[in-house]
Write a protein that binds this DNA or RNA. Structure first.
Lengths: 223, 223
DNA sequence: ACCTGAACACCGTTCAAGT
DNA sequence: ACCTGAACACCGTTCAAGT
């Protein structure tokens, strides 16, 4: 006969908030930071809170909504540019801060890409970006449409960065794309051949700057 | 006693290719086009091919690799600009074609975002884009880095478009972000207040053009 | 009214054991 | 050598039935 599993007594566990939306999100945040968003599942959350998964739906609507809440939690910690920073540099700093936060959480970035976040800290972030663009003389429409674009690029960049160094065996994995490009025969892909060396050149930091400089230039130049 | 389930005779099924990588991908493509990428699961694929899911791993490495193959299948049908098209317009047409293809398949777009595709049709697409940028006088490094950026934006745009009109009840669903923005109080979010009307203005087509014009301008203006 | 056990309808991937 | 049954270790969401 196998020994009956004795549940760990409540006293042995860390103190736990009563079931509530806030408590739910803070437990989810903890798991995400410690183990990655992949581990933040309804079932895991439920077991962490000593209940069944169905109970969570009293406080949240869906996983997507939970992810939105997690993004807003993270954005609470977004560093803001100092008061006197010039507008263009301020935009860059703000976007870098956002990207840095999501870089650590690529799965969340992937989720956010289809989310249309609406939390207060996200709105604050967008409002600040808009403020700088307008201060820089960017026309209203270009600022409004441009801010969407800048944030989308930042999110996509973090999302793309994703799985590659997240997977445990990423180090030993060959990049099939890089291999295919390096081996692309000149006759078939003449232009890849011409720029081959530059396709994978530069540090992440350099390419990040290039991307946001280019996009910001383009937005500012729109009539 | 429950009646034994008699399997449908093979003659009653559509003719089916022998198990092979090619056959696998073409069945996957069919399911994706008919029912969406969500339905293209290893188990579904296996049952469609009258085998167990384990057998598929003889021909493909993982779901990610399968998605890469599906993208390349779709890109086979990418419309190419006519010979005499001016470089800038050609870039736009090429990117629009790519975006159009992925727009119909937003889940694939989401997957592609973290994929680094390497199929022949994808390489052809990148090679063509590069050719037009170089023909337009864009410096080698800006062309190489820029093409990545343009494709990334196109993919992200298709991915973002995603879930919203894919979900069955999208029509009845309120956009929480739009609601939050429309209700953002001026005192707290003064800049959102200033540009409020423009944040959701424009057709998809107009914003698409704005995005690629801005990015392309910015890339071309880089030294 | 608020909460939840149990079920529904699934997943991707591995590996020992066939043939 | 090639292939696969069965298992491993999970999912999100719903809903009838508690309290």
């Amino acid at each position: 006969m196998s020994p009956r599993r004795v549940p760990v007594s409540r006293r042995d566990r860390p103190a736990k908030a009563a079931l509530s939306r806030k408590g739910l999100i803070s437990v989810a945040l903890q798991i995400m930071v410690d183990e990655g968003l992949e581990r933040v599942t309804m079932r895991r959350l439920a077991s962490e809170l000593d209940t069944g998964p169905a109970s969570l739906y009293v406080y949240i609507q869906s996983t997507a909504e939970l992810h939105g809440a997690l993004l807003d939690e993270l954005l609470f910690g977004l560093e803001l540019p100092r008061e006197e920073t010039a507008w263009r540099e301020a935009v860059m700093e703000l976007l870098s801060g956002y990207t840095r936060i999501l870089h650590r959480q690529p799965s969340l970035a992937r989720s956010v890409l289809t989310l249309r976040p609406s939390g207060p800290n996200y709105l604050r972030f967008v409002d600040l970006l808009l403020g700088y663009l307008l201060a820089g003389g960017v026309p209203v429409r270009s600022a409004a449409w441009g801010v969407d674009l800048l944030v989308q690029l930042a999110t996509a960049t973090a999302a793309e960065h994703g799985t590659r160094d997240e997977s445990p065996d990423a180090a030993g994995e060959v990049d099939l794309q890089e291999m295919a490009v390096r081996e692309a025969i000149p006759a078939e892909y003449p232009n890849i051949d011409r720029v081959r060396d530059e396709l994978f050149s530069g540090t992440g930091e350099e390419r990040h700057r290039f991307a946001f400089d280019a996009l910001l230039d383009g937005i500012a130049a729109r009539p």
